[in-house]
Design a protein around this nucleic acid. Structure first.
Ligand SMILES: [Mn+2]
Ligand SMILES: [Mn+2]
Ligand SMILES: [Mn+2]
Ligand SMILES: [Mn+2]
Lengths: 234, 234
DNA sequence: CCTATATATTAGGTATACCTAAATCTCTGA
DNA sequence: TCAGAGATTTAGGTATACCTAATATATAGG
């Protein structure tokens, strides 16, 4: 009945650190600061430093770390992070498609289970789903070999006023942001038109949903930043 | 991305202790000794004592514990243990029925996941499976309300020579025993006839499978003890 | 160029869940 | 009855992953 956990690497915590470094580093794999990680993970900066030092000197180092200059993933760390992201997105897709979860509940369940499913489980749900390329939020699912397909999509906060777009993906955010986003009704596949800037605030956006031209929706920079779009129509 | 775990009770370890006490206490809910728990869980006896003392003095005690006299579950502990057993058996059924796992692999996956699925996940797989009453090993699945249906089945080691039976359930065992059991080909639904005792060893049994009268199978007390049967035919 | 401030690290401490070795109980059999 | 064997508990320690407070570093502005 046990379930002994091996002493070293690969704990739930380590997984979450690696995933956070992957996301915060962005496509250019910039060094990530302790503070950024502390905010993202909700732990004290001192705890971050501790963990990074441990991960950097492990037998198979998960990160490259230099005091005061941030971290980035080592090849092994990157591999593991992508593995967990693949688990996460496959689980979300599975919960949504097979278990009929409401979309706003898939994230929290996936956030936990991503660390505990076996390779067999991963393989079986992928097969059951027909090896999907994207999750229900429109995000690419990394391949089994650890390749993350890049999407051709721009950020809503960079869109040109007057343009017509369709939502390509909605980023992973904290629970509160997710709730506010959900309230706007914006999700993958929704068509919208960007309105001329009304607020002085940089990166905030006003839009109009296709089919509902009467109601303008104002989005804060934070909300708009998580939505990626592609041009629609001609 | 976090997934903060509340400080007190309800860890994976605690769950496994409670489940072990439930099973070892049997239907009569006998007190369970530290040694029995230490063997079952694969931890040092001293660790057992530590955990039991903690569980006994928690704000909502999970066990009734008296020094040198063993433990049993409190009502709250029993509730939690049955909840985890329900998770375990629903997950096994789900892996077997929906994800087409080979039967010998369902246990290990369920042993891990049972601690991490949400109530929603539990409810959804139960619904998808049509609210099953037994798992793929023939064991009863506790109800959502925490009732464990009792089965009318006797232990193979108590069967009368000459009787014809069908296997009702196969108990949960350690990996090694499971492997040996699997090698005999015995599973739920298999029909067999008990042969006159050949070995002097108490509780060991010889049987013959229906349809394969040529090969007698000798089972050790340990193997036979995990197999429960019901009379078959007239 | 050099200090103030923000950023990051070190130091020291907590809780969980294990471990080994050293007591201390319990209870059986002479 | 009571000694000793076996079961159990206590004592003291480890590793992980957090925390707060104190200290050190980097660098941007004056
Ligand atoms: Mn996670
Ligand atoms: Mn995997
Ligand atoms: Mn378990
Ligand atoms: Mn449940």
């Amino acid at each position: 009945m046990p379930a002994r956990r091996q002493a070293n690497a690969n704990s739930e915590s380590v997984d979450n650190y690696l995933k956070a470094i992957l996301v915060l580093g962005g496509s250019t794999e910039q060094r990530v600061t302790s503070t950024a990680l502390a905010n993202r993970l909700g732990v004290a900066p001192a705890s971050i430093t501790n963990m990074l030092q441990k991960l950097a000197v492990a037998p198979e180092p998960m990160v490259e770390y230099e005091r005061h200059r941030g971290v980035r993933l080592s090849p092994a760390g990157r591999r593991r992070a992508l593995e967990i992201v693949r688990h996460h997105r496959l689980i979300e897709t599975f919960l949504y498609e097979i278990l009929d979860y409401p979309i706003e509940e898939v994230h929290d369940e996936a956030e936990r289970l991503e660390h505990f499913i076996s390779e067999r489980f991963e393989e079986r749900i992928a097969a059951k789903l027909g090896h999907p390329k994207t999750d229900p939020h429109g995000q690419s699912i990394p391949t089994m070999e650890g390749q993350m397909p890049v999407r051709e999509a721009i950020c809503l906060s960079e869109a040109l006023a007057g343009g017509a777009y369709v939502i390509d993906s909605v980023g992973e955010r904290d629970a509160e942001t997710r709730r506010r986003l959900e309230a706007t009704g914006l999700r993958v596949g929704i068509k919208l038109q960007v309105l001329p800037r009304t607020s002085a605030e940089t990166c905030s956006v006003s839009i109009r949903r296709a089919g509902q031209p009467e109601d303008a929706i104002d989005l804060t920079a934070e909300l708009a930043g998580g939505i990626r779009i592609v041009p629609f129509g001609i």
